[in-house]
Structures are given as structure tokens and as C-alpha cells.
Design a protein around this nucleic acid. Structure first.
Lengths: 214, 214
DNA sequence: ACCCAAAGTGGAACTAAGTACCAAGTTGGG
DNA sequence: CCCAACTTGGTACTTAGTTCCACTTTGGGT
């Protein structure tokens, strides 16, 4: 695996947006478009870098100069939407609660109609189908999530159904995320802090009743 | 990438735990131990399948019969802990709130001292270092998370510090998880439902004020 | 208009993950 | 005791990703 930190794509502009850099960005965009067309036609896994390079009119070698990884083509696009969400979040009134502000920032994604080509909605479809994030796919099929979510669904005490399942999935994934955040913070301290306390903190900031049974 | 659904490891026991299956499980465990020793010594990326196979006394080919992927060695171990958490969750009193029950189920991980070899705590350390889940690493360094979390931290209105950062990370990751759950549910409906409503539902079940600014 | 250092390009050769296939060896259990 | 089923290792292949080198292009200053 390539180290994602030393991406060969944009080595931080030393001064301004020089002509060469703009050309480079344009190339990246064009190659990305070509790649996504192929992905949509034959799927992510079934599309080789060679095909993309050929279709875009460059060599395999050069492709890897623009994208360090095949995945990076997809991830780059995802990152764009992330930037939009981040911008939307920053634009929200400062006195809103973080959770509500986040919900409104996500409108950038949720309110985008699936009509326009290349819209976030379409991309979401492609991403889920493409199974790029093999890891997340695994987590949801074989990992903790699938083992825990059913029990959570049962505990929600609602009639079984797609909406209840979704709520259980959200709850489970959020909890796991909190645990992840706690362990990350714990590792950052070199293991000196109390992982248990950190987990309380992380989960508590989402639902104050995290400390009490009911 | 191998399809994680057709894992060559345990093709569903047709009748009982036959002798051959138990032998197989024992082999898997032993190979896994050898692999983790190598991972700990030289890191995940720098350890080749060939090395693991040689150290375990089997051929490369046979290794792939036990583990479809090098990652699966690690993921298998993670899955064991997941099963423990799931069991712990099922054992909690039925009248506890889901969120609290989840918190207590995580005690299996958080309360395990980092002393014993192969303890969850040690494994957590290894996993974060190994960067197996290249995706999650990316998400946290280049992805949405890193773009959104700082803003959330600012909005928490607390003095900057490691704990605030962790709370912001937890909040951000949880919100993204909710959005993921919503889009998954949305895709499951073929795009007929309102993604926006689903997002409200998913985020709302964690913090009731998700629907209101304050 | 000219020039050159820097950047871009493509090809060849390499490592490593993962897959497909085959021929031989082992063994469980009737 | 035996054979069908399972296991094993070897070879050959595809693809992602890296490294190196030689060649071409070009931006931008003189």
C-alpha cells in the first residue's frame, strides 16, 4: 500500500497557482471523469489502471503520477464533497448546537437531487456498489457492526422494520465510533489515561444518559 | 481484492465440529499467532505473506487457503473481540437503554489491562500502528473527519485540549456514521424514501435535539 | 527569439498480493 | 484396509504499485 501522506498529486504549491499546476489539476479532473465512466460501466474492481490510462490517453506510469492509487481516484471525489460539508458547517450560526449544525451541514448531501450527473446522490450509489472501502464493507458484513446491531435493534423495543434497523445501525456505528475516538485518544496518551473514563467521555457527549442505566 | 463473503476459511459446518475442522481451526490459530509476532516485530506492511508462510512452516499457497487475505489475519482477531462485545451486550438487563448497554458491553475492551499478551488493549495498539485499515486511516487524515472535526471542536465551546479533541472526534465520527446508516437505508429503498428524513431519523435517535437548533 | 533547468512522459524491470489449476500426498471413517 | 475426500505445494498468471532511466516538452527569464 502506498503511504497516503505523500500523495504525488499536489505537493503543496510553493507560491501561486502556476500554469503547470492548473494544467495538472485539469488533467486530474479529466482522468477522474474517464475513470468514473469506466467504473460506472464495469465496476471498480473490474476496471484496471491500464484501461483507465488507455482511455485517458496516457501511460500506466503517468497515471500513477496523478493518482498514487486506484482508490485515490474515488477518494479524491469523496474528499470534494467532504470539503463542501466542512464549508457548510463553518457557515452555520455559531450558537447552534454542534449536533444540529452537523445535521444541517449534511444537507449539502441529503438535499442534492439524484438527477444531475455526478451529483452526491449518484456518487453515493456508485461508492456503495464499488466496494472501494473494502474495509467498511467488511465491518458491516463480518465485523462488529453486524454482530451488535441486531441486538440493539431488539432493544429499541419498536416493531421490526427498515426504519428500526436503520436506527439500530446508526446507534451501533455511532457507539463504535465513540469507542474508536476513545482508544485513539488513549493511544495518544501512551496508555497512561483511563480508557474507561475516556470511553465514558466520548459516549457521554452524545447522550448524557450514557452514564446512567436509564 | 478478495470477496470477503466467500472466505475459504470456514465454509459453514455441514453437521458438527468434525476432527478435520478442529484441526483447521487450530492451524488458523497457530498461523495467526506466528503472523502477529512478525507484525509486531516488523510491522504489517513490511511483513510478506511468504515470510508468514515460511515461519509457520507452510507454503504461500496453503496460507491463502486459511486466510483469503493478509488483512484477514488481523480482521479475524478483531472479529473475536467483536463477538465478545456482542455477547456482553446480549447479557445486559433488557430494560437498560441501548446506549448505556452498549457502553457497558464495551467494558470487555476498556477494562482489559494492557498487561496480558494478546489482550485487546495490546491489539488496539497494534492495529492503529499497523494501518491495516488503510481506509480508516485515510478517513481520519485526509477525509471528511479531519475537515469537520476541527470546526466541531471549536463549536464545543470548551478550552482546547486533548479531551475536547476526543469529544469532537467522537461527535464527528458518530454523525458521519449516522449519515452512512441513512444513505445505506436510502439505497435499500432504491432511492424512493427521503434521504433527508432518514438522516433526521438516524441522527435524532442519538440526540433528540437533532431536530432543533438548540 | 532563444535557451535551459525543471517538469512531464513512457518504457522496462521489479516486488508483492491474490487467483487458477494441477498433480501428488494424507487421512478420516466406513 | 481402502478409497473418496480433503490437504498440500508448485507453477504460472494477473494486477497494483514502485523504481529507475532516458527522452521530450515547456515555462519563463534574458
Amino acid at each position: 500500500m502506498a503511504d497516503p501522506t505523500k500523495t504525488p498529486s499536489t505537493p503543496a504549491p510553493p507560491k501561486r497557482a502556476s500554469l503547470r499546476e492548473r494544467t495538472r489539476a485539469a488533467m486530474r479532473a479529466e482522468v477522474s471523469d474517464v475513470a468514473f465512466r469506466l467504473f460506472a460501466e464495469q465496476g471498480f474492481e473490474n476496471t484496471t489502471v491500464e484501461q483507465i490510462a488507455a482511455a485517458a490517453g496516457l501511460s500506466r506510469t503517468t497515471f500513477f503520477r496523478y493518482f498514487g492509487t486506484k482508490e485515490e481516484v474515488v477518494l479524491g471525489r469523496v474528499g470534494e464533497y467532504g470539503r463542501q460539508v466542512a464549508d457548510a458547517l463553518a457557515a452555520r450560526p455559531a450558537d447552534e448546537s454542534p449536533w444540529y449544525a452537523l445535521r444541517r451541514a449534511f444537507d449539502v448531501i441529503t438535499e442534492a437531487g439524484p438527477g444531475r450527473p455526478g451529483s452526491p446522490a449518484d456518487m453515493v450509489r456508485l461508492l456503495s456498489q464499488a466496494c472501494v472501502l473494502m474495509t467498511r464493507h467488511w465491518e458491516k458484513t463480518q465485523g462488529w457492526h453486524s454482530m451488535i446491531a441486531p441486538e440493539v435493534a431488539r432493544r429499541l423495543g419498536e416493531s421490526a422494520g427498515p426504519v428500526t434497523d436503520m436506527r439500530a445501525n446508526a446507534l451501533t456505528a455511532a457507539a463504535i465510533s465513540c469507542l474508536d475516538a476513545a482508544t485513539d485518544a488513549w493511544i495518544a496518551t501512551g496508555g497512561t489515561a483511563s480508557l474507561s473514563d475516556l470511553a465514558d467521555q466520548a459516549m457521554g457527549c452524545l447522550h448524557e444518559t450514557g452514564h446512567t442505566p436509564e
